[in-house]
Design a protein around this nucleic acid. Structure first.
Lengths: 229, 229
DNA sequence: AACAACTGCGAACGACGTTTGCAGTTTACA
DNA sequence: TGTAAACTGCAAACGTCGTTCGCAGTTGTT
């Protein structure tokens, strides 16, 4: 009974409520922060698939099994990585202007975050307990939406949908670029052929994200809010 | 040189252009269709993680290595599964009414497909060569959008965004339900606490999907199209 | 001093995707 | 018809993965 992982309680406990270390024993050679930092560096450079326990441990000069003194699973590590990345959205803007403007600004920040940490796209869809930074981000969105008079559930919907649409934009290039026609009989797809045969036309406007987010939030939330500043 | 996988050409060839089998040798005991069917049944029942080469082969009464006579990788299998599932969107509706109505109908069908094959949500985001059914679906969307006068790129954007938003709705329940507060100090999130303390208010209307898709497509495509029937 | 709770670490376990070698079967071509 | 090439199924193996285990050493409590 003296070999359980660090602070493991009687049951499946969340990583957020488990203390990093106890009071006895030698001072640990590493820390959760260092491990998460190494993992994020790896993910930024080579993608999420490169974040194996062995690789992260190797970057810290230790063995894979040693990491389990600091966290109890790889999923925990991904949760910690996600929460730290979400923390980079700080500092949160004041809600002085129109709430719609502020929300669109937040969406832009999210889009930029997906740019600096592309692996977030592979991670946000997993069901996982939200960490303190994710909760803080959510709390901040609710603060901005405070003047909006509507059920809380609708605000939750709007926030989640905004994050989702931003993630769609973040991987937009990969989605359409996935079309390839190697050795495929194209005669069955007349409209597709016609579309590619025509000149492509002007590229879509750069404010597509802005317009989409505005339209989305305006459709999901009532615009007759109380107060504008 | 006589032991290469089935029909493997000189280079990395797409699964769509590789013949299922050659002319010599015994008649195969299985087929791509049977393998894909077993894999989809497994994924429907136990999720995509249950679709291992060993499990699929086991369902067919053979060994994992034998599957490589029919396909060259697990990714190929996922591509085949995806394309067959997309094929279930047929038959495609006539484009007689308003194109917006027809597109929303297609979106509803996609949403239903995500319901019967939840593993599609874990699969659509991978970069992969689109199969014939995916191309047919795309071609059909272009046919419906034919009366819309705008650059082809904008139509591509709109189709991809509609699919993306539908996928967001498909996993909506899991997204917000992922919030849990086990052993977390909530005093740092005042708006979150206030939101949960208040009565939840009426549930969001059931036509949320409809309204969102309509707003999205109206925002992405010009509505002054030529002809309505 | 004794014991419990911790530390690092290397070896191992089971599952995964994939490769390989081999024996047997069918077709193409001389 | 004979032979070689191309195919078949299959079992065993390879390397990687996440994770567990056992052991020796260190620290804190009593």
């Amino acid at each position: 009974m003296s070999d359980a992982p660090a602070g493991a309680g009687p049951d499946r406990q969340s990583i957020w409520s488990r203390p990093e270390r106890g009071t006895r024993g030698p001072t640990p050679a590493h820390s959760r922060d260092a491990i998460v930092g190494a993992a994020i560096a790896l993910a930024d450079a080579e993608g999420l698939a490169a974040v194996s326990m062995r690789a992260v441990a190797g970057a810290l000069g230790t063995g894979a099994g040693s990491l389990y003194r600091y966290l109890s699973s790889r999923d925990d590590l991904l949760d910690l990585m996600t929460d730290r990345a979400v923390g980079e959205l700080r500092p949160y803007p004041q809600a002085r202007g129109d709430w719609l403007d502020t929300m669109v600004l937040l969406g832009r920040r999210q889009l930029a975050l997906f740019g600096t940490h592309p692996w977030l796209l592979d991670v946000i869809h997993r069901p996982s307990g939200a960490g303190p930074e994710s909760l803080a981000w959510f709390d901040n969105c609710l603060r901005i939406l405070e003047p909006v008079r509507c059920p809380v559930a609708a605000k939750f919907e709007a926030i989640a949908m905004m994050t989702g649409v931003v993630s769609l934009f973040a991987r937009r290039e990969a989605a359409v670029g996935g079309l390839s026609f190697d050795g495929i009989d194209l005669t069955a797809y007349p409209h597709l052929v016609a579309a590619f045969g025509r000149p492509p036309g002007p590229a879509p406007r750069g404010d597509l994200v802005e317009r989409t987010l505005r339209g989305l939030l305006r459709g999901l939330l009532p615009t007759e809010s109380t107060g504008t500043g």
